[in-house]
Design a protein around this nucleic acid. Structure first.
Length: 929
RNA sequence: GGGCCCUUAGCUCAGGGGUUUAGAGCGCUCGCCUCACACGCGAGAGGUCGUUGGUUCAAAUCCAACAGGGCCCACCA
């Protein structure tokens, strides 16, 4: 759709061809200009019309929206590399590719950041009030919110920025509230007072998924609870109770033992005296108690423990809540009221000890729940919150993964997903924060403006009646993120123009939803990925995306998580400055093997840098023969005129290899084997294109040191093949490839590489025989080089070589090799080459067996006979070992009769070849005397 | 307590029933500033694919157990 782009900028001038003295490729100069060209030129734009008209298939990736407080880290760089790779590739393959960027408002994180900043300025959130505080947050977002999006541009992310959404923008907010209203109407959202994970630091509830369980050294105290008689007087008996949390003793409302515990049968139904506060509580029996833990009795504290809450429910035990929201004890804690929980714990233990109730204190490893946000110790607390019933949503979400509508890559993540979905819990969605989507619940007020509890609340996006007040709480951040793939496109109401939704329209929603792929880390599989699938199937009756590609997580060199506190983070932008964004991308792609975590050593980016440099230099070999104007723009459009059959052997070989590479890259990418695809492109360019093809076609210099010319046809083919390689490489290294692209031919701005068609090689232009013959050339060249290296023949010194051609069709092979003798001469430094079937060995020559052929290099006076004999003996020995293994196989009746014929034939071929080679080697050995 | 992953060359990792007797990058050894590239070129050394069993004509590859390492989930107070 290039034609529809209004003001195509001129392509930036290509830098003049560097001279050798210029040193290595400098990405900084090159990378700066292209992003602007692409962005200004609208190359990232996805056109709705192209899809609705049926002209193109959509390919859509919703970018995991980074937090507004976020700064680009290696995890982003990895995931963005994968996403941009897919987007650029699909775009070139003719899809209307849309990568939707945006940002997440990140409730707690952002509120904390802004609050901290205000505190530094001596201001307090609570003093300034909700409205003023929110203004500060929006101001903060104005100022810093775009930083991470700018950082993503540096990496080359080709997202359509026009589609960018913020989860707090007007339309998105309406979608969030609409979802709450709908769920309420469907009976799937409810308010309830249960034990929640309370973060006393942030003073908000958080969900189970936001709690980390950490093992910490602590103590296990054993405390005596006296059994009392009918009159409430202490008897001689007592239950010993082990606890790690004595500060909750004031909230004990029962003591429990196992129903089958012989020791305490007679106590069931009796009462004990809680040694703090002297309350009398019943002894109950419950299966959940472990007889062998501590002394076999558990204090039941339903107000402050999840397990106890469950036990309490079963036995209708009273619930006491002794803690305030800030973590201090309340008046129900009696003497300890007002104390902070840690201080209270110490004091209670000291008092129990003084009063003789403390039986013993042991060191004990306590599993402590920690808020992943504030790192504060979570307090299970009774609190009224809003919940979503998840089971009905999970059912459909499970189905679409089970029936393959959604596919996970790697597949094992589908199992993790299932496991979670099958055992899902309701989701507490209210948060006691200010920054976020206000819960759309409205209350009637009385004459004093207080909430009138006697009247039913109303759930509605807009204020239902004047004078009603809205619920103070906001919704969990993930309650907006789970709508990301469709709310970004304007769902549920794309007709209504809302701020921040420039591209939303019914057509866009229809064209670009569902998305194609989601790329994310497994750390948010449950937080986000699973919930999006639930939201998609529930609200839109569609899956949000067909494929889910789960990347590994980036760790440091030693395998530890990168964190601010460890200071072991590697900044992708530093790396981009140091090595180039292309190098960062390519390196990450190479490291992106399926699903494994990546232990990243910054030195690894050198590999990507070296490759960029290699490609850059390769272009110079033939690039110097392309005529250009003063701005470095090519002035001629050399196209090959020769038919494929008329190409030289190495040309037919490289064209075939390119075709094979395209097929291989396509296959790898189809199954998200990113690293495999990257390595395939790398090998083609470095091993095939540079090491062999360029070495053969590059002109030398004549006696006076002037470059010889390159003929137009050779140049045309080099440009053609290199362009194919640039296309393959472009999704990995967009900047470098775009730069080199413009050095090849005169082009119109719309023919930027980013907008090019993906290579689709002509099946007629592939030549398996050329590949086979060239492989022989490569082997012969290597053989000569081997001898040269072994005997220390200076690279500058030419040698004479005799190739004794063997095998079944020696005559034909010799003839074919004869036609490309110059390759061998050139690459192996040969000045006198004899190629003949069964040529005899020149005297005093070193010999190497290559397939059925032999390579002889006469080295009068240079050969160390003993060393040569040694080498030959070793080689013979190795070959014999190989032959033995093959013969063993062939001697196995079962193998011959049961293995496929082709496999057996292959083994026979191996045996025959090895036999012939051994014979040749032995002849050489004998010849040495 | 359940579940998942990893264990292959000195290091970091690919591969995942027969593709020569196992590959890459880095590191190492030897020789080269060969006029695209020393961020380079050529030639090498280096591994009984964690252990033990099994399935199979054939196992690094599939299965089981075990041993190390890591991760996730779970209410042991």
């Amino acid at each position: 759709m290039a034609e529809t782009r209004p003001h195509l900028p001129e392509a930036p001038a290509a830098a003049p061809l560097p001279e050798a003295a210029d040193g290595p490729y400098d990405p900084t100069a090159v990378e700066a200009k292209w992003y602007r060209f692409w962005e200004d030129g609208g190359f990232f734009h996805a056109d709705v019309e192209a899809v609705t008209s049926g002209e193109k298939e959509p390919f859509v990736i919703p970018m995991p929206p980074p937090n507004v407080t976020g700064r680009l880290h290696m995890g982003h760089a990895l995931q963005d590399t994968v996403q941009d790779l897919l987007i650029r590739m699909k775009r070139m393959q003719g899809f209307e590719a849309l990568w939707i960027p945006g940002q997440d408002h990140a409730g707690i994180a952002t509120q904390n950041v802004v609050e901290r900043k205000l505190r530094e300025a001596g201001q307090d959130r609570k003093e300034m009030g909700r409205e003023t505080f929110l203004q500060h947050v929006w101001g903060w977002r104005e100022e810093y919110g775009d930083i991470i999006l700018q950082q993503k541009r540096r990496l080359g992310d080709s997202c359509d920025w026009r589609y960018s959404r913020f989860t707090m923008d007007e339309g998105f907010s309406r979608a969030v509230q609409e979802v709450f209203v709908r769920l309420h109407e469907q009976g799937l959202v409810y308010r309830g007072e249960y034990l929640v994970n309370w973060d006393p630091e942030n003073q908000t509830v958080i969900s189970n998924e936001e709690v980390d369980n950490v093992e910490r050294p602590g103590s296990l105290w054993t405390i005596r609870y006296p059994v009392v008689d009918a009159n409430g007087q202490d008897t001689d008996e007592a239950l010993l109770i082990a606890t790690t949390r004595p500060e909750t003793i004031p909230a004990d409302t029962a003591v429990a033992i196992h129903p089958e515990d012989e020791r305490f049968q007679h106590l069931i139904g009796q009462r004990v005296r809680v040694p703090v506060g002297d309350r009398l509580v019943p002894v109950i029996a419950d299966e959940a108690i472990k007889m062998d833990f501590g002394a076999g009795a558990l204090k039941v504290t339903p107000g402050h423990s999840e397990v106890d809450w469950e036990i309490g429910k079963r036995h209708e035990i009273e619930v006491l809540s002794i803690m305030n929201l800030d973590g201090t004890l309340n008046e129900l804690a009696g003497a300890y009221a007002g104390m902070e929980r840690v201080a209270a714990k110490k004091q209670i233990v000291a008092d129990l000890d003084a009063q003789g109730y403390l039986v013993k204190t042991e060191d004990y490893t306590v599993t402590t729940p920690i808020s992943s946000r504030s790192k504060a110790v979570i307090e299970p607390l009774l609190s009224p919150q809003w919940y979503v019933s998840m089971a009905p949503l999970a059912e459909k979400a499970l189905e679409v993964v089970n029936d393959g509508t959604v596919t996970f890559y790697p597949a094992r993540w589908a199992n993790e997903y299932r496991r979670w979905m099958e055992d899902i819990r309701d989701w507490p969605i209210s948060r006691q924060l200010w920054w976020g989507h206000r819960i759309p619940v409205w209350y009637y007020t009385d004459a004093d403006g207080e909430i009138d509890e006697s009247r039913e609340f109303v759930v509605s996006v807009d204020q239902p009646e004047a004078g009603m007040v809205q619920d103070e709480d906001v919704l969990d951040t993930w309650f907006s993120s789970w709508l990301w793939p469709f709310a970004t496109l304007g769902w549920p109401d794309p007709e209504t123009e809302t701020e921040g939704a420039a591209m939303a329209s019914p057509e866009a929603l229809k064209a670009f939803y569902p998305a194609s792929v989601l790329v994310s880390g497994y750390d948010i599989l449950f937080f986000w990925i699973a919930r999006m699938i639930m939201a998609g199937t529930h609200f839109t009756e569609a899956v949000p995306y067909r494929d889910v590609f789960i990347t590994g997580m980036i760790k440091d060199k030693q395998g530890r998580w990168m964190s601010k506190s460890l200071g072991n983070g590697i900044d992708p932008l530093d790396m981009a400055d140091q090595y180039g964004a292309d190098a960062v991308r390519f390196t990450l792609a190479v490291l992106c093997a399926q699903g494994q975590d990546i232990k990243l050593d910054p030195a690894k980016f050198e590999g990507g840098r070296n490759f960029a440099n290699k490609v850059w230099n390769a272009s110079r070999v033939f690039g110097r023969y392309i005529e250009t104007d003063r701005d470095g723009r090519p002035t001629t459009d050399a196209k090959r005129t020769r038919a494929f059959a008329d190409l030289s052997l190495v040309e037919r070989w490289i064209v075939t290899r390119l075709a094979e590479t395209v097929a291989s890259v396509d296959a790898s990418m189809r199954s998200y084997r990113i690293s495999e695809a990257a390595n395939t492109v790398y090998d083609f360019l470095w091993r095939d294109f540079c090491d062999w093809y360029l070495e053969l076609i590059k002109p030398g210099r004549d006696e006076s040191g002037e470059f010889e010319t390159m003929d137009a046809e050779t140049l045309a083919l080099a440009v053609e093949v290199f362009e194919g390689a640039l296309k393959l490489l472009h999704p990995f290294m967009p900047f470098l490839t775009e730069e080199l692209w413009w050095k090849q031919r005169p082009r119109h701005a719309r023919e930027a590489l980013i907008a090019c068609d993906w290579p689709s090689p002509d099946p007629a232009e592939q030549d398996a025989e050329a590949v086979a013959l060239f492989a022989t050339v490569q082997d012969l060249v290597s053989a000569v080089r081997q001898i040269r290296a072994q005997y220390g023949v200076a690279p500058s010194k030419p040698v004479a070589v005799t190739v004794s051609v063997g095998g079944d069709s020696a005559e034909a092979t010799a003839e074919a090799l004869e036609s490309v003798r110059s390759y061998i001469e050139r690459l192996a430094g040969v000045d006198d080459l004899v190629i003949a079937p069964d040529a005899s060995k020149p005297p005093a020559s070193a010999a190497v067996v290559v397939d059925r052929h032999q390579v002889f290099v006469p080295l009068a006076g240079m050969i160390d006979l003993d060393a040569e004999r040694d080498r030959l003996r070793k080689e013979i020995e190795a070959k014999r070992g190989f032959l033995a293994s093959v013969e063993k196989k062939l001697g196995n009746e079962n193998f011959v009769s049961r293995a496929p014929e082709a496999v057996v034939a292959k083994e026979r071929q191996k045996r025959d070849d090895a036999t012939a080679e051994i014979a040749a080697l032995e002849a050489n050995l004998a010849d040495l005397g």
